[in-house]
């Protein structure tokens, strides 16, 4: 559904230092620098897939999305989306896609969101019955019945995002690009939107590319992730494999009945597990937090349970945030 080969996007950036004299100098001697926002990126996405796009700010996620939706012309490389070349701006292509940007609005600012919906109805040539059906469904799922009658400029960020999603989905695009769709939403609403995206994907067999700062979005929705940094695609594959590769440990938290004896026991037990890739992250009199290599987690926990009077014990995967930052620190390889 989406085919990208050797995509490159280079911006020419005018450079000058701060201050009056450098601004005068730059009138006569302009210096430019090439910034490789996306550099030699290739991937393909199958129909109906949801793919998470991860990377720090300025990594090239949004630039890639803008190329995929035709807003930007690629400097080099080939891009095909749903059989179209996006930057040719064909109407048939635009009817099939939607780009939702958390930071940018497609809603008309001074009138209620319902007016934008009506504009999209005629622009996307949606017939009355289909429009009514789709709108009713969106109103119910996103709970926007009242919100959509208020002028957009009076909406909160969360309310606006919901209307933004509704406006983008009225024409039932089968290619959906979501750039930070849950930004500014409270935890409940994030969950609602997540569930909504999952349902939309299932119902309409839509192909979805998603970026988010909330790892929970990505972890909940995507089996496959692409990690990008400084314009380079660093990883493309299953989330589980990324976690295994860059976080080959689990977090073990243990609460026990304290006292000097217990602490000594703990110390000797930990020493006896010395070859288990074990690391103490935090420790108090009644509590210890450990990082343990995956293959040793059962031995280590069994031994701790045997020797200590354990009050509680939890074993968790590291958070996706940790995995990603570890991955960046290690310089992940695709």
């Amino acid at each position: 559904m989406i085919e990208v080969r050797g995509l490159q996007k280079v911006y020419k950036v005018h450079e000058r230092e701060a201050g009056f004299w450098s601004s005068v100098r730059s009138l006569f001697d302009r210096k430019f620098r090439d910034v490789y926002a996306v550099d030699d990126v290739s991937f393909s996405i199958a129909p109906g897939e949801i793919v998470g796009f991860l990377g720090p700010n300025g990594a090239g996620k949004t630039t890639t999305m803008k190329v995929l939706t035709g807003l930007l012309h690629p400097t080099a490389g080939e891009v095909q989306v749903g059989g179209f070349v996006p930057h040719k701006h064909e109407r048939a292509f635009k009817r099939r896609i939607s780009l939702v940007m958390g930071q940018k609005s497609q809603l008309i600012w001074d009138v209620p969101a319902s007016e934008t919906f009506l504009v999209n109805k005629v622009i996307y040539e949606i017939d009355d019955a289909a429009y009514r059906r789709q709108l009713d469904e969106l109103i119910e799922l996103l709970q926007i019945a009242e919100v959509m009658q208020k002028p957009v400029r009076q909406l909160s960020l969360g309310e606006r995002m919901k209307c933004e999603l509704a406006a983008s989905l009225l024409h039932k695009p089968d290619l959906l690009f979501l750039d930070e769709p849950t930004i500014g939403l409270d935890v409940n609403m994030q969950e609602v939107v997540r569930e909504f995206i999952r349902r939309y994907n299932r119902l309409h067999k839509a192909t979805i590319l998603l970026t988010s700062h909330y790892m929970a979005d990505v972890a909940a929705l995507c089996q496959r992730v692409m990690v990008i940094n400084r314009g380079k695609l660093l990883y493309d594959g299953e989330i589980s494999e990324l976690i295994e590769r860059h976080a080959p440990y689990k977090r073990l938290k243990l609460w026990f009945d304290g006292g000097r004896e217990a602490l000594e026991l703990l110390e000797s037990t930990l020493l006896s597990c010395g070859d288990s890739g074990l690391k103490v992250i935090a420790q108090t009199e009644h509590h210890v937090e450990l990082e343990v290599a995956r293959q040793h987690i059962s031995t280590v926990s069994a031994r701790l349970l045997q020797t200590l009077a354990v009050a509680d014990l939890t074993i968790e995967d590291p958070s996706l945030e940790d995995v990603i930052s570890q991955a960046f620190a290690a310089g992940v390889q695709p």
Partner: peptide
């Protein structure tokens, strides 16, 4: 400011 994108993305 890039607000042109919203119009450019629509098929009109």
């Amino acid at each position: 400011e890039g607000t042109f994108s919203a119009k450019l993305l629509r098929p009109f």
